[in-house]
């Protein structure tokens, strides 16, 4: 196979991630965490370096008195972040609405 063609074709799932290099992506992580940021690097473990990252952590508040649960999300931004691949659940282009 020609190396030049290999750079353009999608043969394995990770090729989709490769096409997202230098694009903003959405990453869902274990522990109800989500990231949105620009993909600068990744490897086969889905270790990643992201830039201009916005992290959203979703937590469930339980109110014992009225027996209700409410979702609360906390946001923070990190300019440059290495993410260890073992926490990654999915990688996707960010949704247009977000």
């Amino acid at each position: 196979m020609a190396d030049t063609a290999a750079a353009l074709t999608v043969e394995e799932p990770l090729d989709l991630v490769r096409l997202s290099l230098d694009e903003r992506i959405y990453v869902k992580l274990r522990g109800d965490r989500e990231l949105r940021g620009r993909l600068h690097a990744y490897d086969q473990h889905l270790n990643m370096v992201l830039g201009e990252v916005e992290e959203t952590i979703t937590m469930v508040d339980v109110n014992d008195e009225v027996q209700t649960q409410s979702l609360r999300s906390v946001n923070r931004t990190v300019p440059m972040l290495f993410v260890r691949g073992d926490g990654v659940i999915l990688v996707s282009p960010p949704s247009r609405a977000a």
Binding site: D22, H40, G51, V78, P79, M80, V83
Partner: peptide, 21 residues
């Protein structure tokens, strides 16, 4: 480790993307 926060001025993003490709 879950994350490592880095200082962006020390990261050459163009070089990183080339290396990733």
């Amino acid at each position: 480790v879950r994350y490592v926060q880095l200082s962006p001025s020390t990261v050459d993003t163009a070089l990183l993307q080339d290396a990733a490709r």
